[in-house]
Nucleic acid binder design. Structure first.
Lengths: 238, 238
DNA sequence: CGGAAAGTTGACATTCGTCAATTTGTGTGG
DNA sequence: CCACACAAATTGACGAATGTCAACTTTCCG
């Protein structure tokens, strides 16, 4: 639960009652293994999912079997907000790594949203931030090289993890397979491998086991054509 | 104003009071020429913009000067909803063609949203639909060919125009330059030109002046790997 | 008409994908 | 602790898709 409090606090100050309200939400925790389905495309879900640990993602399956990951959920993110509004899902949601999520029934979400307009606003803000992130990803996919796209991915995940206190200085844990990076960036596995080597050789990014180390943040920002403003990493009265 | 009524009606039935409430919003109409800026990145806007005619778009400018269009607004769409929640814009909004927009101050939008929870829900739904559209575009950009991406673009615009009554059967008006199509699809101008020729030769899409004619909808859907479910082109109680 | 913008085409360079082999890493049972 | 099996990462060779540059043609509009 506290992951959500952390996430929303980074958008605006929460009152004690608001925190209490969030904590009053009833949920049940579920575990999913890497690759497992959390929500199915075309279904009419009854609950959204607060990521508690690990990573979740929206995933598209193409006609000829390809795969594109279109959005990543880090701890503190509510997956399936859109389906609450639309009634129906348009893409699968899967576990990108082993992960724990808290399932919130839409009744509980509705209660939260209807009780506190301020919390509602901060929650819908999640949709707006997701939109900004999507637009940044589209620009990255459409107009930058493979190394830039991968760099962009690392920059974004780093900042989002930091926002909920899950990243150290220039270092964070990310247990993704290269094939998954390929499916996020719209590249082939082999090309991801080669591009990662380029980033290593340029001393921008290094891996230590399952940790990612950002060796030169400024240079990485430039290489990736990344401007994180869109994440709204600032608390403001809203 | 009626464009918004039409758009929201396609999401759920509107009561007479709700329609009246929408019509009570004060606005002032503005005209923009093709390419002109409507909102600037990084600014703190005071109003959102209801597209009344023409097309608007979110546009990213890359470090080396490239350009990527990440989202298109057709008549009935409210541009700048996110900035209402986030306070700050993350991308430019520009006129893609000559267009007329109604500027709604955020006070007026706030009044609408605060007065009617049902309308609020239908308006936030716009964010959810935009998200689904972004995810579809990401899959298209990441995992399909140039012809498929262009086809995807035409499919989406056709359905969205139809939803607000601006498209005939398999035919609609679209006054875009090939360079703009390139900036939407993440391709070069030259390659767009060649891919359009392929689509013409396959008898999927034809142009007549500024009209686009869809010669074989079923085949186009397949070519473009397009599934429009995400546009939520169905009215449901929400 | 005349001129500029938009569209079209050819030749060639570059990026990225595919296929296939090899190496490295990791967990498990003996 | 070792041996094995399997997943993941790495590398090379080659082909396909797309980008770039530059010319030329058509359309549009005053």
């Amino acid at each position: 639960m506290d992951m959500l409090v952390r996430a929303l606090s980074s958008r605006d100050t929460l009152s004690d009652e608001e925190i209490g309200l969030i904590r009053s939400v009833r949920f049940h925790t579920q575990r999913f293994g890497r690759g497992q389905a959390i929500m199915d495309v075309g279904s009419y879900p009854q609950a959204c999912f607060l990521v508690r640990s690990g990573l979740a993602a929206h995933e598209h399956t193409m006609l000829e079997g390809g795969r594109q990951i279109t959005s990543i959920g880090v701890p503190g993110d509510l997956m399936g907000l859109s389906a609450y509004l639309l009634k129906q899902t348009a893409t699968d949601v899967v576990a990108l790594t082993d992960c724990e999520v808290d399932a919130w029934s839409y009744e509980e979400l509705g209660r939260l949203v209807d009780t506190s307009p301020h919390l509602a606003r901060l929650i819908w803000m999640g949709l707006a931030i997701e939109g900004a992130s999507h637009r940044a990803a589209l620009a990255s996919m459409g107009r930058t090289s493979a190394t830039a796209r991968i760099g962009h991915l690392y920059c974004e995940i780093y900042l989002r993890l930091r926002q909920v206190g899950l990243a150290a200085e220039n270092r964070f844990d990310l247990d993704l397979r290269q094939e998954q990076v390929a499916d996020i960036c719209g590249l082939s596995l082999v090309h991801v491998n080669r591009s990662l080597k380029v980033l290593r050789d340029k001393r921008l990014i290094r891996r230590e086991g399952t940790s990612v180390i950002l060796e030169d943040w400024t240079a990485l920002l430039k290489e990736a054509d990344f401007d994180g403003t869109y994440l709204s990493l600032f608390s403001a009265a809203r």
